[in-house]
Computed example of a mutant assay.
Amino acid sequence: MTATTGWGVELQGVTQRYGDVTALDDVALTIRPGTITGLLGRNGSGKSTMGSLLAAFRRPTAGRVLVDGEDPWENERVVPGVCFVRESGDVLDDYTLKDNVAYLSGARPHFSHELAGELLELFELDLKRKPSKLSRGKRSAFGIVVGLASRAPLTILDEVHLGLDAPSRYAFYDALLADYAEHPRTVVLSSHLIDEVERLLEDVVVLDRGRVLIAQDAESLRAEGVSVTGPTAAVADFVAGRDVLATQRLGGTTQTTVRGALLEGDVRRARAAGLELGPVPLQDLFVHLTDPARTGGAATHAQGVDR
C-alpha cells in the first residue's frame, strides 16, 4: 500500500436507494488519483451517500464501486486506506482525545503522530478532554486532525469545517495544502463554502438530485462562466443562442451569466457593442447550475434530505 500518489475512484452505474428515496441515480464517475477534488452539491444531492459508499460503510443498491481498482466492501487491503471524516468526525465519545488518537492511529497505516500533534496544538485541543465535552467547532477540528494525520491514500472530508470560525477554517485549508504538497494523496473535499475552498480544488464534481451534473477540472470549469454586462438590447443580442444561466436587470442595464468559453471573435464583438465581460466565481456558477428552476428533477429524488 502506498500513499504517495493516492488512489483513484470509479463509480459504474451506481444507484443508492433508501426506501422510496433515490440518493444516487445511475452515477458514472471517475476521480483522478493524486488530486484534490471538490464534491459539491446542495443538501440532498447525494454527497454523503457517495462518501459512505467509497468508505465501504454501505453497499450500493445497484452498480459497482471501485477504489484503487477494487471493490472496497470488506476489502482488507482497501478499507484501511480510506479515511472518511464527516462533520465532527467519527470518534469514541466516551474516551479522551488521546485515547481516540491511539485507537485511530492503529487503524491507519500511514498515520502521522507528528502531524497530529501539530494540528492538535494549532486548534488548541486538549488531549485530556472527551469529544462529548467539546464544542461543535472543537469536535470539527478534531475530525480534521484525524482526517489529515491519517494520510490515507483516499481521504474524504465531508463538511468537516462546520462549526469552525473563519480563522480556524483558513488554518485548516492551509494545513491541508501544505501536507498534501509533501504527502500527495487523493482528497475528496465536500463543502458548501465554495468561495473559500475554490483555491484548493483541482477537479470538481457537482451532484444534483443524485446525478452527476458536472465532472471536470476546476480550471476549465472556471473558464466556462462569463458575465456579460451592458445595455439590455445589446446583451440580449450577444447572448442569443448561448447557454444562459442567470439574468439581472437594473433600469436599462442587464447582466447575464452564460456558460461556454468565448472565442476571440466573440470578445471583439462584445467590446464593439460596448459590453463588459467578466469572470464568474465558481460559487456563482454552482448556484446557477443547480438552481431547481433550471435543473428540474423528479420528486422521488432526495430533495431536502441531507444525504
Results as ranks from 00 to 15, higher is better:
170 Y>T: 12
294 R>I: 00
258 V>A: 00
242 R>I: 11
234 A>D: 14
39 L>Y: 11
186 T>C: 12
202 E>R: 10
18 Y>C: 07
236 A>F: 00
206 V>F: 07
278 G>F: 02
206 V>E: 05
153 P>M: 15
186 T>Y: 07
175 A>V: 05
286 F>S: 13
86 R>W: 07
104 L>W: 08
195 D>Q: 15
90 D>L: 11
51 G>P: 11
165 D>I: 01
41 G>Y: 01
59 R>I: 02
134 L>Q: 03
171 A>P: 08
239 V>I: 13
13 G>C: 13
168 S>W: 01
206 V>A: 10
265 G>F: 00
289 L>T: 05
289 L>P: 09
84 F>E: 10
276 E>K: 04
20 D>F: 04
16 Q>I: 05
303 Q>N: 05
220 S>C: 02
87 E>M: 02
15 T>L: 06
109 P>N: 13
158 D>N: 08
292 P>G: 01
60 P>W: 04
147 G>F: 02
117 G>C: 09
94 D>Y: 08
21 V>M: 04
38 G>M: 07
196 E>Y: 03
171 A>N: 07
146 V>T: 14
62 A>F: 09
198 E>R: 10
75 N>E: 07
121 E>A: 15
37 T>Y: 10
139 R>E: 03
285 L>K: 12
174 D>A: 15
45 S>N: 11
266 D>F: 02
274 G>N: 12
75 N>W: 09
96 T>V: 10
23 A>N: 04
304 G>K: 03
242 R>E: 05
291 D>I: 04
16 Q>G: 03
267 V>N: 02
51 G>A: 12
16 Q>M: 14
4 T>P: 06
119 L>G: 06
140 S>N: 11
168 S>P: 02
110 H>Y: 14
172 F>L: 15
170 Y>Q: 15
122 L>S: 01
9 V>I: 15
205 V>G: 06
112 S>F: 09
104 L>P: 08
307 R>P: 06
229 T>D: 00
155 T>M: 11
258 V>I: 11
130 K>N: 10
293 A>E: 07
61 T>G: 08
251 G>R: 10
300 T>E: 14
27 V>K: 00
176 L>D: 09
24 L>W: 11
263 L>H: 09
247 T>D: 08
113 H>T: 08
125 L>G: 04
19 G>F: 14
34 G>D: 10
208 D>W: 01
217 D>W: 09
11 L>S: 02
74 E>C: 15
270 A>F: 08
42 R>S: 05
291 D>W: 04
222 R>T: 03
44 G>N: 00
219 E>H: 08
184 P>I: 10
158 D>L: 08
108 R>F: 13
105 S>V: 01
305 V>C: 03
297 G>C: 03
81 G>L: 15
110 H>Q: 09
119 L>C: 11
55 A>V: 06
51 G>K: 12
244 V>C: 02
28 A>D: 09
126 D>G: 06
215 A>F: 03
232 T>C: 09
57 F>V: 07
279 P>H: 01
81 G>H: 15
83 C>N: 14
307 R>A: 15
